[in-house]
């Protein structure tokens, strides 16, 4: 049975907490308690860090993309220095060094990390499980079109696919192409078209028809 109580840090215990205590869970508790006792960190600092990470989500990136679509000066700033431009927009991206790569009618970008699972987590939040999988890490650099097809993205031969392997210090966000039929849309409405996968490159932004009827601007 799931606990229904909250931890002192204010986070609900989840059903996962009710499975038998594993060796590695015990190690997490031990390391955390010892670090707190030695004054390296505090329970409040850990809770605050969890809250900061939980607050990051693809919705942040969607706002960035929607602004790129509507603000040429901001687009130029993002292509010049995406870290500075997102920070100036008010997002707490910490020390992350970000590069924005822009899709066009003839270029489709997709991001992978073959050596581990580097991801623009300080803007988009933690990566999806598939991004960390052996299959995605192995295949994307060799057969990106086959991988993209599994995500429902098929591209004509005259569209160049460009794979970005996040091997070192930089992180990447893909700027998807703006869907047709969105002239005059507000930035908030546009942001609702921008999916997580479209900012990794394994998806496209939704078309206006892709929004539920009640979500669609008139």
């Amino acid at each position: 049975m799931p606990h229904d109580h909250m931890s002192p840090s204010g986070h609900p215990f989840r059903a996962d907490d009710d499975v038998p205590l594993s060796y590695w869970q015990a190690m997490e508790i031990a390391v955390r308690e010892l670090l707190i006792e030695k004054g390296v960190t505090t329970a409040a600092e850990i809770a605050s860090q969890i809250d900061a990470m939980d607050a990051r989500s693809p919705a942040n990136g969607a706002q960035v993309v929607a602004r790129i679509w509507t603000d040429p000066a901001f687009r130029a700033a993002m292509l010049q220095d995406a870290s500075a431009a997102t920070a100036a927009m008010g997002f707490d991206i910490g020390p992350m060094k970000l590069i924005a790569v822009e899709n066009t009618d003839t270029l489709h970008n997709v991001v992978v990390c073959t050596l581990c699972s580097c991801y623009p987590r300080n803007l988009l939040g933690l990566p999806p499980d598939w991004y960390k999988s052996r299959a995605y890490r192995s295949r994307t650099v060799r057969e990106p079109r086959a991988v993209l097809a599994e995500f429902g993205v098929t591209l004509p031969d005259n569209t160049e696919v460009r794979v970005h392997d996040s091997t070192a210090d930089m992180r990447y966000i893909v700027i998807p192409t703006r869907p047709a039929g969105t002239d005059g849309w507000s930035r908030d409405d546009l942001a609702r078209l921008v999916t997580r996968d479209s900012m990794i490159g394994t998806g496209r932004a939704k078309s206006p028809e892709g929004l539920a009827g009640t979500d669609r601007p008139t």
Binding site: V141, E160, V161, R162, V163, H164, D165, T167, A168, M170
Partner: peptide, 28 residues
């Protein structure tokens, strides 16, 4: 740190999925 652009043909040979597709990686 250099961002280097390769063609898929250079990496995987002419039998690759689409030879003119590209890949970029950061190399020290």
């Amino acid at each position: 740190l250099h961002r280097v652009r390769f063609t898929m043909q250079e990496i995987w040979g002419p039998q690759t999925e689409t030879p003119h597709d590209t890949l970029e990686a950061e190399i020290y």
